[in-house]
Amino acid sequence: MQLPEIDELLDRTHIVTLPLVTRFRGVDAREVAIIRGTVAWSEFSPFLEYGDTEAANWLRAAIEFGFDETLERHADGEIWVNATVPAVEVSALDGVLARFDGCRTAKVKVAERGQTLADDVARVAGVRERLGADARLRIDANGGWSVDEAITALRALARFGLEYAEQPCATTAELGELRRRLRDAGIEVPVAADESIRKAEDPLEVARLGAADVVVVKMQPLGGVRRAVDIVESAGLPATVSSALDSSVGIAMGAQLAAALSAPRHDAGLGTASLLAEDVVIEPLRPRAGRIPLAPVTVDEAALERLASPAERQEWWRERLRRCHALLAGGSAQIPE
């Protein structure tokens, strides 16, 4: 992959801070780098705590999408997406779900630090009640349970008809043990792997060890559309394409991954622009009738100026870009061509 020079990349980059509608993953705002590529706008937005080697995957994805003329792109059609429900009180569910027009699937966050299983049960029950018996519900624990805790929690939550439980435990070995114990206990909840794929040195280990029924793939952490497609095809499992609380630019990148997959796929976790109070495009990719379009987004350059991050955050991100670019240029990042 041909890398742009670092000075050119920095000249094309805008660092913005996007406020959230509700607290999510412990933050009230999302910092992202929006890049005006030669082919398309792209996004570089690894979470702040990620190290440079991991973040370099995200930069490779941004460069592939923004600068690679040979990348196949889809402009017609739509992608079904799920509603994403943060770990909110039941009283807040109506307001959250109202932002996800027509979604037939909802992902509910559970195992939030400082909350209890009773909180999770009440939240999932509330979503089921509001969306009805035909809706598909999935939960996401972000690796927050031990195997024993997951067994207890999924026994309590299974009655709500879960499509799957996403990353209930932290490690691949735990996911494999959990799947076996769920089967032995007669608890019919499929297991999906997210962090065990996107943060793993070997993203195919979960499939090889039989540790998941579904793979959850995110375009940026996996290094781009092509690599993510290869991982899904090699895993041989149904897939869910998801986002990492991206702007609509990053969501559009994820939608292209969803369109590129030939494997069976679940409704995508690409409705999260609805969690942003402000966005960087003219028409944010919020779900309408449960779907988002594949047509390219139009960046609002006035919004890039209005939402520009403070000077010290600009410099922090630009230094991060320099370091990640150097890893890609030197071939020392864990990113196959």
Rank of each mutant, 00 (worst) to 15 (best):
V21H: 09
E78V: 14
E54M: 15
S42C: 04
G102N: 01
I34S: 03
R104F: 07
H74Q: 10
L117C: 02
L117P: 00
A83F: 06
N82R: 11
L59I: 12
F100E: 11
D76C: 05
G66K: 12
V85G: 05
N57L: 15
A62Y: 04
F47C: 10
V96H: 06
T84L: 15
Y50G: 05
T70S: 15
E89I: 00
L71P: 06
V85F: 05
R104D: 01
G102M: 07
V88C: 09
C103A: 12
L48I: 13
R113G: 02
D94I: 02
A111D: 02
F47M: 13
A62P: 11
A83V: 00
A92I: 03
G26R: 11
A111Y: 03
S42Y: 08
V90W: 02
G26V: 04
A106I: 05
S45K: 13
V39S: 08
V81P: 05
S45G: 10
A40M: 07
L117H: 03
A118E: 14
F44E: 03
A56W: 08
A87L: 09
N57F: 14
A106T: 03
V88D: 00
R36P: 04
R113T: 03
G95D: 08
F24I: 04
A92E: 06
F100P: 00
E31Y: 01
I63A: 06
A61K: 08
A56P: 10
I34D: 06
Y50D: 13
A106D: 01
